[in-house]
């Protein structure tokens, strides 16, 4: 039986009626057309579906859509403001911290959550924070450098 869910999605209150077995990831992609979060494994191993739930990174494939009721969900689409990119998004571009781009939305959301909690993480903290996000292209070096760039900027200011 379908159930109603009301939650905050990228800053806006939204509503959906959804079957209980549908995952949050599926709802975001199919109901709200937010396809930034991807399904890479469906088992919480790859992190491509990472979104922020009440500012914490979680695998949207491991959450039932109905559980979203009352929560605050931020997806990669909610990071930028129109044509204005979030600082972290721009830094990913500047450092070439992406290649095929498929892991990128999830990767950025994990890094964003870290920076929200700790604006000046160490390299080790960055590595640990994104180790639940698999990337097959970059070898991770430029991703870590991009996040550390922000950390260093925050440290300087």
């Amino acid at each position: 039986m379908k159930r109603d869910v009301c939650f905050i999605l990228n800053g806006e209150p939204v509503k959906a009626s959804i079957e209980p077995h549908v995952t949050l990831l599926h709802m975001l992609r199919e109901v709200f057309d937010l396809t930034g979060a991807k399904e890479g494994c469906g088992g919480g191993e790859c992190g491509a579906c990472t979104v922020l739930v009440n500012n914490k990174p979680m695998n949207a494939c491991l959450i039932l859509a109905v559980e979203a009721d009352g929560l605050d969900i931020l997806t990669v689409e909610g990071l930028s403001n129109g044509l204005e990119l979030d600082e972290l998004q721009q830094t990913f571009i500047d450092h070439a911290a992406l290649q095929c781009g498929y892991c990128t939305p999830g990767m950025i959301m994990s890094a964003k959550a870290l920076l929200m909690k700790n604006p000046t993480p160490t390299e080790d903290q960055v590595v640990k924070a994104i180790s639940g996000n698999l990337c097959r292209c970059t070898g991770y070096k430029k991703i870590v450098e991009a996040v550390m760039d922000i950390s260093n900027r925050n440290l300087g200011s």
């Binding site: 919480g44 990472t50 990174p57 180790s131 639940g132």
Partner: peptide, 9 residues
């Protein structure tokens, strides 16, 4: 246990 994302759940 798992990743940061998993440990948040």
């Amino acid at each position: 246990v798992g990743s940061c994302q998993v440990r948040n759940r």
